[in-house]
């Protein structure tokens, strides 16, 4: 396909959205949020497109994206027609895009507060869980005795969803924040421990032999051989851990914590304000994707020494 056509795809998609927006009458009162968001996105696209001129690789990247953007625009148009234009999809379960976006304008203060509260909880729990998981994983991987006694416990407790412990934690922990942190840490601890231990246990023996003939002590063997060799596996644990900690966080907030995105969702659905539910889901998606992308970036930096083909 001609480059010119592909570059124009997003503009074409935007045109379709605009035509739909201004020609077909709406069943609900319009807030003009749609045109603002769309114009902003078009400006961003244009800037990115112009900036990509510097390298053919970047141009190719943008070109690869344009069909997706076009189909996305079509999907948004269809969504708009089915909801607010023709009313085919029933309210309040189905909400128009514009209504969902309006939440970001009307309720941004509470949303932001909830997001920050969730992030604070998430990172505290995640970091504690990762750190303790690393330590237990190293101990299990390094000392056969620890492996023998502790590994069965890890394997038994690990697969139980952390949220099961909520009733118990409400009784034991003095504060709900502390309880939630503990819950998230517990959820992360399991994959972190397991993947660290697995990584260390599967370190090829030759590396230890080489290091020992070079004069390495056990400190070197653990920190400069076993752990580096286990890093790919540890990163796997970090990804899995991020997934479960997000799930646990939202569940914990839905069940007891009186703040955060999970709490926001529960409250909104209690009032059947589903547009708010969807708005917070979008925030969760964006946040989660950003964090995962960030971990990916760190992973690629730390694991440059890996062959490209085993990257996932």
């Amino acid at each position: 396909m001609k480059k010119g056509v592909r570059i124009a795809f997003p503009y074409l998609g935007a045109a379709i959205i605009f035509i739909n927006y201004y020609t077909i009458p709406s069943l609900a009162e319009s807030r003009s949020i749609y045109p603002i968001i769309l114009t902003a996105l078009l400006i961003v696209y244009t800037v990115v497109w112009i900036a990509s001129f510097r390298s053919p690789k970047k141009i190719q990247k943008v070109l690869n994206l344009t069909p997706k953007l076009f189909v996305g625009a079509l999907a948004l148009t269809a969504w708009d027609i089915l909801t607010v234009r023709m009313g085919v999809l029933p309210l309040p379960f189905f909400q128009s895009f514009e209504r969902i976006m309006s939440v970001f304008v009307d309720d941004w203060h509470l949303l932001l507060k909830s997001l920050l509260h969730s992030l604070r909880l998430l990172f505290t729990g995640y970091l504690i869980g990762m750190a303790t998981g690393l330590v237990t994983g190293v101990f299990i991987g390094w000392y056969p005795k620890v492996n023998y006694w502790i590994m069965p416990i890890v394997k038994a407790i690990g697969p139980i969803p952390a949220t099961v412990w909520i009733p118990l934690i409400i009784v034991i922990m003095p504060t709900m924040f502390g309880g939630s942190v503990f819950l998230i840490a517990l959820a992360v601890w399991f994959p972190a421990t397991l993947m660290t231990a697995t990584g260390i246990l599967s370190t090829p023996n030759t590396y230890f032999e080489v290091a020992r003939t070079l004069g390495a002590d056990s400190r070197y063997l653990i920190f400069r051989v076993a752990i580096p060799s286990a890093l790919p596996s540890i990163f796997m644990g970090m990804f899995i851990g991020m997934g479960v900690s997000c799930v646990t966080l939202i569940s914990a907030e839905m069940l007891g914590v009186k703040a955060g995105l999970g709490w926001y969702i529960t409250k909104a659905s209690g009032w059947t304000e589903y547009h708010k539910v969807y708005a917070s889901i979008i925030i969760i998606l964006i946040t989660f994707t950003t964090i995962i992308t960030l971990i990916f970036k760190i992973r690629d930096k730390v694991l440059v020494w890996q062959k490209n083909e085993i990257k996932w």
């Binding site: 030759t206 590396y207 032999e209 080489v210 290091a211 003939t213 070079l214 004069g215 390495a216 002590d217 070197y220 400069r224 051989v225 580096p228 060799s229 890093l231 020494w305 890996q306």
Partner: peptide
């Protein structure tokens, strides 16, 4: 010192890091 039949270099270290690994250990 033993030079193994396979190179058995530490894959997470650069050429420099590998050559220096004995001194570091």
């Amino acid at each position: 010192g033993l030079v193994f039949q396979d190179p058995s270099l530490f894959p997470w270290l650069t050429v420099y890091g590998n050559v220096a690994s004995g001194l570091k250990a």
